[in-house]
Structure formats: structure tokens, C-alpha cells
Design a protein around this nucleic acid. Structure first.
Length: 484
RNA sequence: UCCCCGGUAGCUCAGCUGGUUAGAGCGGGUGACUGUUAAUCACUAGGUCGUUGGUUCGAAUCCGACCCGGGGAGCCA
């Protein structure tokens, strides 16, 4: 399969109204004829000298994985004084003529008539980003400089392309993007520990008559937190706009220190009115396939890089997923399959218990060898807002499991029946006063509806083949770690 | 939070059955050489071996504590 990205190149040309210098992406895409005068700006990756009287400078401007080779001749006035001292990381403005390359490895190069050094690297000896392999661990410690590496440049472009594919998908299908609040008063959305938002003086806390912290004196006049999910808020818009989604930051104060968890991450949550669990499964499948197809088309260069340097299966597994129908099965059936598998699991599969990572991997990687949608989980292990099935034991929840990554989507049909929802909230001992507005949605024109949550960074891990979630977000926030 | 593993030059690592001045590659500097491709070759600078106690004639190496990081688990997206 071959992917080209013509439309993206045209888009770049239009933006050149404000930026007369062509991007390296457009130059290498062949949009600038050889013989043209040309100016580029960017950062030096490497410099190779020839004593015969010129230097080759690889310049990258972030518009593409690839560098443009700038040929600097000794006749340039600052050749000996400046150009011969360029090191990785220096910023330059290069003006000259685009010519066919006399060397192998690139079709065109810039024959420089002028090279202006915009910014030197203060101490080249200690500049952290070198043209060599760095550990991801080290690069995390220089999160402000890692965008200058091939890998993080590619991640940044693919992250953008994926976000755009998500918005495009929903736009094409009649969904509205709803910006749900970051600050919330819901303290028990059932999705994990919350970060408190407060302007109270921690050194001198306001107290009420009983000696408890008096949140009436806090900024919002009540206890508030950072959101752990936009779902509850977006449901209200779903029951007016029919098809909506959130795409924004989400916060969990869980002290989980794993390659799959962030304290601050981005989540995509579509919510569809008049839909049930089956339609939701269909949406999840169509959504993933569409987004993957779009990223493969638009980010072919960067994906090829991931295949070469990060994960050789990065492209083929997306293509495979796009081509395979997702397998659907009930939770009860999944438990039976696991119990009869003859595989020895660390945790025994048992009806009523949640599926462990090892169980999910068996189902999707061994048994089905395809993405699996597991549906209808026991009510006790799922959230209060999920719709109770007629059997009274299970809820209309689903998890989409993908080979090689596990759970990528979790969702459910929502409980739209007022009395059933109220009784489930009682069972979970939720403070009903805080959810009256949520119950209103069931009082006034309630309809069946369903939605799911997708971890954006987990999706990026799956796409890029990078295995640590901290390497697909610009500035990762994890327990004990927010230095940038 | 639990279980493992690790912290040695700017980076990637070796050295760790304790023994004289701690090594390599890359990166930096200098020089040589070539339309070069993470160029090549030579020379050169650069480290209080995470911190802190202890064992010992002697600790990067052994032991304890602490700090930091990574992997796995749980929880989840």
C-alpha cells in the first residue's frame, strides 16, 4: 500500500502568504522548482566539512522528518568565522538557490548565497540533543529540547494528524465538539482520584462551626476538582444536539506509575442519542478504522520512520486492524473462553471479577487474533451510570481490546430510566444532591443514549509503536513529576 | 501502594568474585582528508562513580538508610 499526501502540501502553500520562506516539507514535496531563489529557516542537525572548500549542513524546520541539505561554499563571507563552527541545535536562516544535488541521498539541496546564524548553541559540549541515539528516559528529562529529535518531531506531527483525523471523523458524521468544563464539583464520577481546585489559604484553612474545612469560603463557594471525565456534562448536550463529543484534558490523581498512565491526559468521548450498545460498538469500530486510515495516508513519512526505528509492526498492525472485522462477545462468553483455554493465568478468570490484563491479551491476541469488543459486564464492577440489562445482573458496557495494547476504548449505554438510575446511585452511596441536574436529564425528555471514552495518548502509543505514554505527550505529568 | 531492576564523562554504556593514575563509542575542540550522508582518520579536553553512614590497610565494586529513575502489578483511559 502506498500513501501520498497531496492535499497537505497544497495547504502549506496557502499559508506561505504570511511566511514567504517555504517550509522544507513543501520543498522536498517538489513544490519549489530547481533554479528558484529560496530562503529557509530552521535548526542545524549536523554539519560535515570538506577542506576542499565547502560544508554540508543538514537543516530541519519541523515541517517534515527530513532535513534539507544546505551547501555552504568557502566564498561565503562568514564561512571560516561562523559556518565552520555551526553545531547541532544552532538556528539559521539560509538564502540561496534550490539546485539538483550532485551527491547521492537527496534529490535537491540549497546552494547557499547567505547563511545567517540566528542563534548559537551556548555550550556545544553540553548541548543535550546530539545526532545519536538517546534513551527515552533521558529525553524526558529535557522535555523542552526533545521536540528537536526525529522521534519527537514525528510524534508531534502524528499527534496533530491524529487529532485532526478525530475531529474530521466526527465532523463528517454530524457530531458537535462540546468543550466540557475542566473544573467540576462532581467528586465521585467513579473514575478515580481527583485533584482539588482551591484558593483557600492552606497555611490557615477556613473552618466551619464543626471544625471542618469551610469550602463555602472557597473560590466557587463549594468544593471543586479538576475533571476526571467530561461524560456527565456532555450527556446534557447529547440530549439536545443528538451527536456530540468531547476532546480535552482530563486529570486523575491516581498514584499509578506505569507506562500507560498519566495524571494529565487527553480524552475523546463521543455521546450518541437514540443509540444502544450495538450501535456504540459499530461506532467504535468505524471510528478507529477511519482514524487509522487517515493517519496512514497523511503521515506516511513519519509512520515509515516509526517502522524503521521504533516498532517494525507499526504500520502493518494498523493495516491489519483496518482490514479485520472486530469480534464481539459477551463478558460471560469471554469468561467461559478463558476458563476453557487451558492457559494458566496468574488471576483465575471468574464470573463477577474484572478481566485482567493477561485475560484481555489472551482474548485479543490468542483466541481471536483480532480486535475484540467485550460487552455486558457484571453491574457490580462497572459505573453507576451504565444501563442495567433485563437480566438484572449485567450492564450494557463494552471494552474494545486491541492486540498488543489491551483496552483502548471503554464505554456503555447510559441508564436513561430515572428510577433505575436513582436506585443505582443509592446502592453506590452517591451524594444525590450533587447529581440532581444529571437526574433532570432523565426527568425531561429522556432517551436511550450511549458513549465511550478513548485515551488519546494510548491511541498514539498504538499508532506510533512507542510503548511509554510519557513519550507521546509534550509534557508528561506523573506522580512526583511536573518539572516543565 | 506492592514486587523487581538501575543511578559511572554532555549522551550511550563497559568496569562491580574489593587492590596501584576509572575506560570505550558518540558529542565538543584542534588538525588531516573526501560531493559529504549520524562521513572517515589522528590528537586533545572532560568524571569528588546518586547522597550518606558503615565494613576494610584499601570501596565505583561489599552492607544499611535515604533520594531519583525505569520495568511489572493493581487502578484505569
Amino acid at each position: 500500500m502506498i500513501y501520498y499526501s497531496g492535499p497537505a502540501a497544497k495547504f502549506q502553500t496557502q499559508t506561505s502568504i504570511n511566511m514567504p520562506e517555504a517550509s522544507i516539507q513543501t520543498i522536498l514535496a517538489g513544490e519549489v522548482p530547481t533554479g528558484s531563489p529560496l530562503t529557509i529557516r530552521g535548526w542545524v542537525r549536523t554539519r560535515r566539512d570538506s577542506k576542499a572548500g565547502f560544508s554540508f549542513i543538514q537543516v530541519n524546520d519541523g515541517s517534515t522528518l527530513h532535513n534539507l541539505q544546505v551547501v555552504a561554499d568557502q566564498s561565503l563571507p562568514n564561512y571560516a568565522s561562523e559556518i565552520r563552527h555551526l553545531t547541532s541545535g544552532c538556528s539559521v536562516r539560509c538564502t540561496g538557490t534550490l539546485v539538483e544535488s550532485k551527491g547521492r541521498g537527496q534529490s535537491v539541496e540549497l546552494q547557499a548565497a547567505e547563511i545567517q546564524v540566528l542563534g548559537w548553541v551556548e555550550d556545544p559540549d553540553t548541548y543535550p540533543v546530539q545526532p545519536k541515539h538517546h534513551s527515552f528516559e533521558f529525553l524526558r528529562s529535557v522535555a523542552h529540547l526533545r521536540p528537536r529529535t526525529n522521534t519527537f518531531g514525528a510524534v508531534t506531527r502524528v499527534r496533530h494528524a491524529t487529532a485532526r483525523a478525530i475531529h474530521d471523523y466526527f465532523d463528517r458524521n454530524g457530531y458537535y465538539w462540546v468543550n466540557t468544563p475542566i473544573v467540576t464539583a462532581s467528586d465521585a464520577e467513579g473514575a478515580g482520584e481527583l485533584f482539588r481546585v482551591s484558593t483557600l489559604d492552606l497555611a490557615n484553612l477556613a473552618r466551619d462551626e464543626e471544625g471542618n474545612v469551610d469550602f463555602r469560603q472557597d473560590f466557587f463557594g463549594r468544593e471543586t476538582f479538576l475533571t476526571v471525565s467530561g461524560q456527565l456534562n456532555v450527556e446534557a448536550f447529547c440530549l439536545a444536539m443528538s451527536k456530540v463529543y468531547t476532546f480535552g484534558p482530563t486529570f486523575r490523581a491516581e498514584k499509578s506509575n506505569t507506562a500507560r498512565h498519566l495524571a494529565e491526559f487527553w480524552m475523546v468521548e463521543p455521546e450518541v442519542a437514540f443509540a444502544g450498545l450495538d450501535e456504540l460498538g459499530t461506532l467504535a469500530e468505524d471510528f478507529l478504522k477511519s482514524v487509522f486510515t487517515s493517519v496512514l495516508e497523511r503521515s506516511a513519512d513519519d509512520m515509515a520512520f516509526f517502522v524503521e526505528r521504533i516498532e517494525s509492526e507499526a504500520v502493518s498492525r494498523l493495516e491489519k486492524l483496518i482490514a479485520s472485522p472486530f469480534v464481539r462477545m459477551d463478558y460471560s462468553e469471554a469468561i467461559r473462553i478463558l476458563q476453557r483455554s487451558g492457559t494458566r493465568f496468574d488471576y483465575k478468570p471468574e464470573w463477577g471479577l474484572d478481566l485482567q490484563t493477561e485475560h484481555e491479551r489472551y482474548l485479543t491476541e490468542q483466541h481471536c487474533q483480532a480486535p475484540v469488543i467485550v460487552m455486558n459486564y457484571p453491574a457490580e464492577i462497572k459505573a453507576f451510570y451504565m444501563r442495567l440489562n433485563d437480566d438484572g445482573q449485567t450492564v450494557a458496557a463494552m471494552d474494545v481490546l486491541a492486540p498488543g495494547i489491551g483496552e483502548i476504548i471503554g464505554g456503555s449505554q447510559r441508564e436513561e430510566r430515572l428510577e433505575v438510575l436513582r436506585s443505582r446511585m443509592d446502592t453506590e452511596q452517591l451524594e444525590s444532591g450533587r447529581y440532581e441536574w444529571f437526574l433532570d436529564l432523565r426527568r425531561y425528555g429522556t432517551v436511550p443514549h450511549a458513549g465511550f471514552g478513548l485515551g488519546f495518548e494510548r491511541l498514539l502509543n498504538y499508532i506510533t509503536g512507542l510503548t511509554n505514554i510519557r513519550d507521546v505527550i509534550p509534557y508528561p505529568r506523573t506522580p512526583g513529576n511536573a518539572p516543565f
